[in-house]
Design a protein around this nucleic acid. Structure first.
Lengths: 293, 293
DNA sequence: CGTGTTTACGAAACGCGTAAAAATC
DNA sequence: GATTTTTACGCGTTTCGTAAACACG
């Protein structure tokens, strides 16, 4: 007869110890009295010690029985607590959220979102890391971060879900005093003769630019950098042309009047298709999707 | 489908969370892998929340799963602890022992026993109450005390077990200057004409004396008291004759040369037949039985 | 294709309830 | 004789293992 300690046994034991009666314990647990009797017998057999003295009509704890009560009660408390944890988890949004973004998005798009989020969910502890879009996708795949708020890849891994939050049109720009600035029309050939400052070659954004302008490795690239801010600053010095999002345009830069393929990045959120999202992650997703401008 | 949280489920859950694999968890618990799978499914159904993400070959905890680990681990710890408590209880003698004795035994017989006991079982916390033999028997029956070390009743309750530890012969005594002190032979009639100092009428000892001397309510009783020390002191003043145990005799008292029935108390220990004794109680019983003088 | 999880199904074990028996007051 | 626990027995459910199916890399 293989015996197992069982939570139902513990319930029965505590019910008997509190009611000092097998039959009343049965009522409390919605069981018949023989069922209680069997469970207590099973426990006594398993522990190889008597838990109750059945003296006449009364049932009284033995030394061993008394010694077990506090621990067993703690077990039931822990069980209740665990169910409470689950239902809290379902209802309220709290806990930890680890996610990543790019410098550009962190600088230009995220501040408003994070302000709303932290106001709405003050109990969530945010952990934001800055990294390239590509690296972020990798870490999402591996589960090192839950979300990536990045430039969306055009050919994403099938295990990822992508949601576009912002459209980010880009244009070729030059400094106001650049030779191309004043021309009404610029051909692709003219453009490519000029030195350029572009995002690094392994980025999604650069891939997009390559496609739109049909760039190849022979193109006249003066400088590569991952930081669009840097591109903008370099272009402003007149060193060459560059590509930046429209949202970063200002009076110091002129859009080059060149015909290109569609040059628009999709910025948005990336997460793992199969992995269950935490409630903070879901909350952030809702805010992002509710605020697309 | 009625679901119950079960300790086996908790074991399975922790095994999976620690091995990050259903099959390795199965090995650890000596179960097949499908059995583990079913248990985890049952838990997820019961808690209505996903505990693991099965991503490809890897198994990873969800937020909910992580939140459950500490509490579940505490439950298993408590279970282990409870078994440890039981096996300690079986091996070593410690804890609490509540028992009672009479003033006479506490004064003349028990000190040596208790000295040995507390030296041998220093971890036992003794709670000794003084009360009449009759009251002690009642409290043993009700479970208020575990043992009574008292004058044994001649017609005990059937639910009690009695063990004689000491024989306690008694004699009629008078002060050295009492009229009966010098007589070589004293008849029962002569004795009963003299005033006496005897134990209270509701005590076992008094019942014994009544039987031995065939006393009735017309007897010449000067004083009744529960304290044999008091009887001795009163007899020493010469107020009358009394009955005290031989062990209390000294030069100031003379045994009256009267023929009586056998006048011997049995002193010993009383406990409940059906009630499981604590290990301290068993230890004290052993010492008592090993030291009968 | 190999590794790992889920599903399907049959056999064994378990747990419960009803009813009868035993014990105690 | 009334009340409470134990024992006996039958039935429905659960749980496990084997084997097949499925999923993923």
């Amino acid at each position: 007869m293989i015996m197992r300690m069982d939570i139902q046994n513990i319930r029965a034991f505590l019910a008997v110890s509190e009611t000092a009666s097998f039959s009343r314990a049965g009522e409390r647990l919605h069981l018949t009295q023989p069922a209680i009797s069997k469970r207590i017998q099973a426990m006594e057999l398993f522990l190889d010690i008597k838990l109750f003295d059945r003296i006449g009509k009364s049932v009284q704890l033995t030394e061993a029985g008394q010694a077990l009560i506090p621990g067993y009660r703690r077990i039931l408390d822990e069980l209740e607590e665990s169910e409470r944890i689950i239902s809290n988890l379902r209802q309220t949004t709290r806990g930890h959220l680890r996610f990543a973004t790019s410098h550009h998005i962190g600088l230009h798009r995220l501040p408003a979102v994070l302000r709303q989020f932290s106001r709405q969910y003050p109990e969530v502890d945010l952990e934001l890391q800055f990294m390239d879009s590509e690296q972020a996708c990798q870490q999402v795949l591996h589960g090192e971060i839950e979300l990536g708020i990045v430039t969306l890849p055009s050919q994403p891994d099938a295990r990822l879900t992508l949601q576009t939050i912002w459209h980010d049109p880009m244009h070729c720009v030059v400094a106001a005093d650049h030779p191309l600035a004043s021309k009404e029309k610029v051909s692709r050939k003219q453009l490519l003769q000029q030195p350029s400052i572009l995002p690094s070659s392994d980025t999604y954004t650069r891939a997009l630019i390559n496609r739109a302008l049909q760039l190849d490795e022979h193109s006249n690239i003066l400088m590569e950098t991952n930081y669009l801010e840097t591109i903008k600053a370099m272009v402003e010095t007149g060193l060459g042309w560059g590509v930046i999002p429209d949202s970063m345009l200002d009076a110091s830069l002129k859009i080059v009047a060149v015909k290109t393929g569609k040059m628009q990045r999709e910025l948005g959120v990336v997460f793992h298709k199969a992995r269950t999202r935490s409630s903070p992650a879901n909350a952030l997703l809702e805010i992002l999707n509710g605020n697309h401008t």
